[in-house]
């Protein structure tokens, strides 16, 4: 019996390393190729880290970078202002509405971004009328796009704590609803809020569909545009954007891992960022 088990373990080890090597090559090769490709022209990387030079040589790219960063920050803020108070409020006062909220938040998963654009076009005619054609107006659409992921992160965070007891305790000590939200609930779901914000930033930085079809600019639109004139530069920016997303999502998974080990009682605690991103259209 011991021999059988040892033989199986050896077979499994061989199988494991074969699969890992073959797929590892497939996954690492494009990354290496990006490094090689972007270093063919030695002026590419120095230009990328030199902001004044970059905005002079590639004004569209610089504009794309700044709009993407502001879009990411604003979307994260809007998402939190919209979602956290509503989720807490529904848990405390309207538990029957929870299903409805959950359904609405997860709805964007079944509506591809390209379909959403078709429906958003007339809505954005009004948005342009009221707010102008700035690329920052994309924040409205992006908040809908990130709703499923943000909702799941925040809902998991709220499930891990006893919101009702905390709120009742605070209220009985004379706290107003504002204090309950800001000083009692929010600090308790800090890491859930943080992961929702991280996911939002990662998704917004990778968004292309809506921006390009509503004729607004962001990082991905700029990269795509740049690809037509300067392939090296666009690959270098792609690599940078990818590394940034890498760091963000790795931080997120570390955050999730730490939280899970810290609060072993929370079963629904973020099933890793990975799981909450699972059914997502890849950075569409």
């Amino acid at each position: 019996m011991a021999g059988v088990i040892a033989r199986r373990a050896r077979k499994q080890r061989v199988f494991r390393w074969t699969v890992l090597t073959v797929l590892g090559v497939f996954f690492v090769l494009p990354l290496i190729a990006m490094v090689e490709f972007s270093t063919r022209d030695s002026t590419t990387w120095p230009a990328l880290v030199d902001w004044p030079e970059l905005s002079e040589r590639y004004p569209a790219l610089a504009e794309g970078i700044t709009s993407s960063l502001s879009q990411a920050a604003l979307t994260a803020l809007l998402m939190l202002f919209l979602l956290v108070p509503t989720a807490v409020w529904v848990r405390l006062r309207l538990p029957r509405l929870r299903r409805v909220i959950e359904f609405l938040c997860l709805l964007p998963l079944t509506i591809p971004a390209i379909v959403l654009v078709v429906g958003l076009a007339p809505v954005y005619a009004w948005v342009t009328y009221f707010f102008g054609g700035s690329s920052l107006t994309l924040v409205f659409a992006y908040t809908i796009l990130v709703l499923p992921y943000a909702y799941r992160a925040i809902d998991a965070g709220l499930s891990a704590i006893d919101v009702r007891t905390l709120a009742e305790a605070a209220r009985s000590l004379g706290a107003g609803w504002g204090t309950v939200m800001w000083r009692v609930v929010l600090p308790n779901i800090r890491s859930a809020v943080l992961s929702a914000a991280f996911l939002t930033v990662a998704l917004v930085l990778g968004e292309f569909t809506i921006a390009s079809l509503l004729n607004r600019t962001n990082l991905q639109v700029a990269i795509n545009f740049l690809g037509k004139s300067s392939a090296t530069m666009s690959v270098a920016v792609s690599l940078t954007a990818l590394l940034l997303a890498f760091v963000l999502l790795l931080l997120l998974s570390l955050l999730g891992g730490r939280r899970r080990s810290a609060t072993a009682v929370a079963p629904a605690a973020p099933a890793a960022p990975a799981a909450s991103v699972a059914s997502k259209e890849p950075a569409a």
Partner: peptide, 22 residues
């Protein structure tokens, strides 16, 4: 698992350029 979480997100223009470079 962590790498899979990131790469499942990797798509769009960036991925297209990665393959153009490859």
């Amino acid at each position: 698992t962590a790498a899979a979480g990131v790469l499942a997100q990797f798509g769009g223009v960036t991925l297209a350029f990665a393959f153009l470079a490859t």
